[in-house]
Design a binder for these strands. Structure first.
Length: 567
RNA sequence: GCACCUGUGGCUCAAUUGGAUAGAGCAUCAGACUUCGGAUCUGAGGGUUAGAGGUUCGAGUCCUCUCAGGUGUACCA
């Protein structure tokens, strides 16, 4: 439920009844338990505008506050904070609605947006490495989240399948004279071998250059070779997506080559709009305030990154009719996107009201805090990282449950992949990322395993109980109240996370929720032998545990992390 | 040179976008088990939020300067 807006509504009513000629600002979650569940800090801000003492204003507000139903207590504290306690009966009945609802009583958007999320974008000439991890899983999480909230999401995998290097690669594939299934097993080696041949053999180099032109002009033989190469390379990526539990498939691929035919139109349309300037032989757009222009067409007639991006932006805005376009790309390209977005709007390729967002994430650093260099060979292939994570997870499984080898494999996959994803998704995406193998594969503290464990414990209780869980939720003590309010905050948090496109808000929430549940569970036993609680209390606690489990599962599901009933 | 980003306990990160006494995890130390699953829970120590000014009822958050690090900076993507 949208808890905040309900409380805000009550405050707004008090504002109008009290005759305060201002819009009420939103309440926020209380920073401490002793301050209640929510707090309203607006009285201080209004003090100057109204020429009144903030405590007086706060008093005015609470005197006109309709506390029936929703709230149980309000209090003025400090300079004019209004502390708000929710009515336990209201909290209980809302939790009840959530636990009985298919989607935890979370509303689908009334006015869904059409959102394009551009993420992953691997280069077909190379194997995916650890640097591709962030774009892939942050983008996937964002797409999952927006979809869950009811937006119309289009995932776009803007793969790099076009450019001069492909002439060399397909010429080499042809030389190898096989279908590629052997030679393309390792793209790094294939690329290196092709490059060596290119440097050593002038005849081959000529052919490679010739093939570049031929692909671009639509030569059937070369296009067949090229298609074969792309298929195999894309197959490698799909293997990674599958292991990563990422929702990207072929239908989401809209490659660079897709926009190729439109590039000349981009140039002519910019020309018509009077935005193009010849400079040093190239066709450029100069933007106000920028020293460096956006180069649209090179001196030799070739097109650039920016040209393709403009074509893609126009396609997404006009053909896909997007209201919001999110680019999940490394923060180092901030300047590029700032410029391209501006050009797209100036040229009316994209309507002014369309939101263009660069969902930037920090650079991958090594342990010494230096940027991870892709050229120095030091890259770790993504697929190897994932396999390592799964192997490491296998070692940590204490085989109390007497699993079969097959079950262990399945479990290790869920734990290991979850750990890798969570390690990444739980940190603020904008800060630089220190790549640390140990931390990434650790299963202690704030990791996905903690949430998975909490979930499994709850399922274990249900197995023991072995009866339908449909009791009534009653808030029995402060800890239960705290847990229940946390559960009701889920929807507000998801909406905030969607606006900011910051998965770490979701992971922080889940960790807090799981921690709170563990405390609740230690303090308030449910089925423990020898305890003396009423049947009502037991059923209420079971229902709260059930809602906790459902919420954890739903949250992890958005992050693309699976849960299991037994660990 | 110019522009942008970052700087929070020993380490890795939070901080509801300007709110009350800056919170977690790891590590360290001390507790709780014939476990409703110990992959857990309870507690302790550890901070002048890089530094100096400023704005205001109130600053880790906004402004200015300094220092340190990172990134970008015309035909690669």
């Amino acid at each position: 439920m949208k808890l905040k807006s309900q409380i805000n509504h009550v405050i707004e009513n008090a504002f109008s009844k009290a005759g305060i000629p201002h819009k009420a600002m939103s309440v926020s979650e209380a920073t401490k338990a002793e301050f209640g569940d929510y707090q309203f800090n607006g009285a201080m801000a209004l003090s100057k505008k109204l020429g009144k003492n903030p405590r007086e204003i706060a008093n005015d507000i609470i005197n006109h506050l309709d506390v029936t139903g929703l709230l149980s207590k309000v209090e003025i504290a400090g300079p004019g904070f209004i502390n708000i306690w929710l009515n336990p009966l209201f909290v209980a009945s809302e939790c009840q609605l959530a636990v009985e609802s298919e989607r935890l009583n979370i509303a689908q958007r009334e006015n869904p947006s059409k959102v394009v999320v551009d993420y992953s974008g691997p280069n077909m000439a190379k194997q995916m490495h650890v640097g591709h991890l962030r774009s892939t899983i942050i983008g996937d999480t964002l797409a999952n989240l927006l979809h869950f909230l009811g937006d119309e999401v289009t995932r776009q995998n803007h793969i790099g399948d076009w450019g001069t290097q492909f002439g060399m690669l397909i010429a080499y594939l042809e030389m190898k004279d096989e279908d590629g299934s052997v030679s393309l097993k390792n793209l790094e080696i294939f690329y290196k071998d092709a490059k060596a041949e290119f440097d050593a053999n002038p005849k081959f180099a000529d052919k490679a250059r010739e093939y570049v032109v031929k692909i671009q002009s639509g030569d059937a033989h070369c296009l067949t070779l090229w298609q074969k190469f792309i298929d195999i390379s894309l197959g490698h990526c799909e293997e990674v997506y599958h292991k990563l539990n990422v929702n990207l498939s072929r239908k989401d691929v809209r490659a660079e080559s897709f926009y190729n035919d439109d590039l000349s139109h981009v140039v002519s349309d910019l020309e018509k709009a009077g935005l193009l300037t010849q400079s040093q032989g190239a066709k450029c757009v100069f933007l106000e305030g920028d020293e460096i222009p956006v180069i649209i067409q090179k001196g030799d007639g070739g097109y650039l990154y920016a040209t393709t991006d403009l074509a893609a932006l126009r396609f997404r805005a006009k053909n896909l009719e997007a209201d919001r376009i999110c680019y999940v790309v490394d923060a180092r390209q901030a300047g590029h996107f700032k410029q391209v977005f501006k050009v797209a709007k100036n040229a009316h390729f994209v309507d002014e009201k369309v939101k263009l967002e660069h969902i930037a994430f920090g650079t991958m650093m090594d342990k010494g805090g230096k940027p991870f260099k892709t050229r120095d060979g030091g890259t770790i292939k993504l697929i190897d990282l994932l396999d390592e994570a799964v192997n490491k997870a296998k070692d940590t499984i204490n085989n109390k449950e007497q699993y079969t080898q097959e079950e262990i494999d399945a479990l290790a996959k869920i734990i290991g992949i979850g750990a890798v994803k969570y390690a990444d998704l739980s940190i603020n995406r904008e800060s630089n990322y220190i790549f640390n193998w140990d931390k990434m594969l650790s299963f202690e503290g704030n990791t996905s395993l903690y949430m998975q464990y909490a979930y499994a414990r709850i399922q274990s209780i249900f197995r023991k109980y072995n009866a339908p869980i449909n009791g009534k939720i009653i808030i029995g003590d402060a800890l239960e109240h705290h847990l229940a309010v946390m559960l009701l905050r889920f929807e507000d948090m998801l909406n905030r996370t969607a606006i900011d496109a910051s998965p770490n808000q979701l992971s922080t929430y889940l960790y807090e929720l799981a921690t709170l549940f563990m405390r609740f569970y230690e303090q308030n036993p449910i089925l423990k032998e020898g305890i003396n609680i009423t049947e009502e209390t037991k059923e209420s606690r079971l229902a709260l545990a059930n809602l906790t489990a459902k919420t954890i599962k739903q949250g992890l599901d958005i992050l693309g992390i699976e849960v299991v009933d037994k660990l």
